[in-house]
């Protein structure tokens, strides 16, 4: 039956790992703003290079 004790300890360690992850997330401010990250991940970083050159020419 002492295998249960080992299992409890292992289970406890795994759970503690998640708890630590949660504590870290809170402390690093991930719960301070819950709106902008959801928007931010949808931004594209595409750079329409061609357009830039054309514009520069037409303006100068």
């Amino acid at each position: 039956m002492s295998v249960i004790i080992v299992l409890i300890i292992i289970g406890g360690l795994v759970a503690t790992g998640f708890l630590v992850a949660f504590l870290w997330a809170v402390r690093s401010g991930q719960y301070d703003d819950t709106v902008s990250p959801s928007v931010r991940m949808l931004f594209d970083d595409k750079k329409p290079e061609k357009k830039k050159k054309n514009k520069k020419k037409s303006q100068s």
């Binding site: 708890l19 504590l23 809170v26 402390r27 301070d32």
Partner: peptide
């Protein structure tokens, strides 16, 4: 004062755990 809310989150997390 930002820490107030963070502290509550920590308290909730630990209690729930």
């Amino acid at each position: 004062t930002k820490s107030e809310n963070r502290r509550l989150y920590l308290q909730i997390g630990i209690a729930g755990f």
